[in-house]
Amino acid sequence: MENTNLTLGILLQLCQLLLVVLMAPLLMGWVNQCRAWLQNRSGPGLLQPYCTLRKLFHKDAVLAHDASPLFRMTPYIVFGCMWLAAAIIPIIAVDLPFSPAADVIALVGIFALARVFIALAAMDIGTAFGTLGARREMLVSFLAEPALLMVFFTSSLISHSTQLPHIVETFAHHEFVLYPSLAFASVAFVMILLAENARIPVDNPSTHLELTMIHEAMILEYSARHLALVEWASSLKLLAYISIGIALFLPQGIAGVGNWNALPLAVAALLLKLVAAGAGLALLEALIAKMRIFRVPEFLGTAFLLAVLGLLIHFLLGA
């Protein structure tokens, strides 16, 4: 029994690995489609990201003359990190054998690793926009990272574990309890999600104005397969963040330990949640205006504050 469970777990883990990597561009397409609808455009269609990726993979990579090996390795590293991150978050079932390898704190570490590499790659060619992007990205990150950790701390303190499977177990499969602290944490988390995924109001994913760019400015020098991997990695990152949101704040429907029969339902629930989250993200982006770069610290400071308040309220109310 133990063995079959482990085998099934590994099978499930591999399925999720495959699922996330294939689904991530679709999610991106869905968000873009919703945005287009909200802006009264017809939109490129759901499958556009796949077409873009295919096109990019077919092209010849163009590199600057003095690009270092680090520049060429970074897309693979970033892609690997994001893939791993998205794959170990329990969104369908909690039996993921890889998941205990990296708890929530290590998850923050994975994101940081990818970010450091992409910022370094941005500085590699030595262009003005690349360093500008790297500098701004690090500005956003050093504020978002502690806030994200505080969000994780709140849920970890409630569930007495820093492992996502156990957190999901606590929230989804025990008696339903309203946690005010989690309400705070969720608001903070949405703000962090917007900032970390280069969405409005912190960054504009579809900008073509160099001086306002953050993420785009960092990857200006990438082309073809490298660009494809970086883009794919960002869609994986978005999926990973939304998955974290689902795992922490909306875990209902995720299949519990050894409960393999609940899997079809869990997949359906997941799809529903992702559709809703994508639409919500697009709606948020349609409603908010992009802010000046030096308002960003305030924005993220607020996120941090909310997370801290959640933590304090947890200590006061015990909930």
């Binding site: 077919h58 010849d60 163009v62 600057a64 690009a67 060619i125 003005a128 926009f129 200006l220």
Partner: peptide
């Protein structure tokens, strides 16, 4: 395997 490893070199683009 599925695509290629072709690389061309040129000056940095920088928009």
């Amino acid at each position: 395997r599925f695509y290629h490893g072709r690389v061309r070199f040129c000056d940095p683009w920088d928009c």
